[in-house]
Amino acid sequence: MGGNVGVIFRRELASYFSTPLAYVFIVIFLVLTGIFTFFMGNFYERGQADLAPFFSFHPWLYLFLVPAVSMRLWAEERKTGSIELLLTLPVRTWQAVVGKFLAAWVFAGLALVLTFPLWLTVNYLGEPDNGVILAAYIGSWLMAGAYLAIGSCISAATNNQVIAFIITVTVCFLFVAAGSPIVMNLFTSWSDNQLWSAIASASFLVRFESISKGVLDFRDLFYFGWMMILWLAATVIVIDMKKAQ
């Protein structure tokens, strides 16, 4: 039965590359990471051989790029009617959900891996802590997975990709912004520390920043892992509910 996840995964991944989507996405991703890192992150001016400026923009970059990938996961199947084919094949709903998600996640991972020239650059310029960089890459990929899982669930609820995109951006924004300095200052000004830390701990930003400093805390890894599992489970529930509607 696990074989079905693999079959769906391969079909999905191949479909990214049979359309311009994959190439457009990867080029835009690489160009934007470059711009953010070198121009806005003051990569050279900082005089430090690390990738902190590169990674610090990921939560915000993903906010718009990842929903562009996730919006089509289910909404497109509904629009073209292929969902009727997929769900009447001897496949369990969770297998289809996981197979599609994994393809999107591996695709995002591939885009991330293609930023390796930056890693080569810092290693050429100085002696960075490559352990920290690896941790940050892992953290970034996990965060992308959490974004994708949220997007998967929202995409399953609609047959309109634009609506899926906008709602996903909004929901993801809440998860990121909860840990941004503006929101944190707001909360610290009129509430106690416990509430503040509870909200901050649910933030992608706070979790990701701690990983990208090189601290691979299992709580942070579990956090992103659980986010993915919960949102994918919600995707299965949404699809099964739509069947009964």
Binding site: G3, N4, V7, I8, R11, A14, S15, S18, T19, T80, G81, S82, E84, L85, T88, L89, P90, V91
Partner: peptide
């Protein structure tokens, strides 16, 4: 579903696939 073959209304398929890949995909799932 294992015992069923189904042609839905309008014959939906994955448009970006060729018949060769599409039928191989369905055969794998089957």
């Amino acid at each position: 579903k294992r015992r069923l073959g189904y042609l839905p209304e309008g014959a939906p398929a994955y448009g970006d696939m060729t018949p060769a890949r599409f039928l191989a995909f369905v055969a794998d799932i089957r």
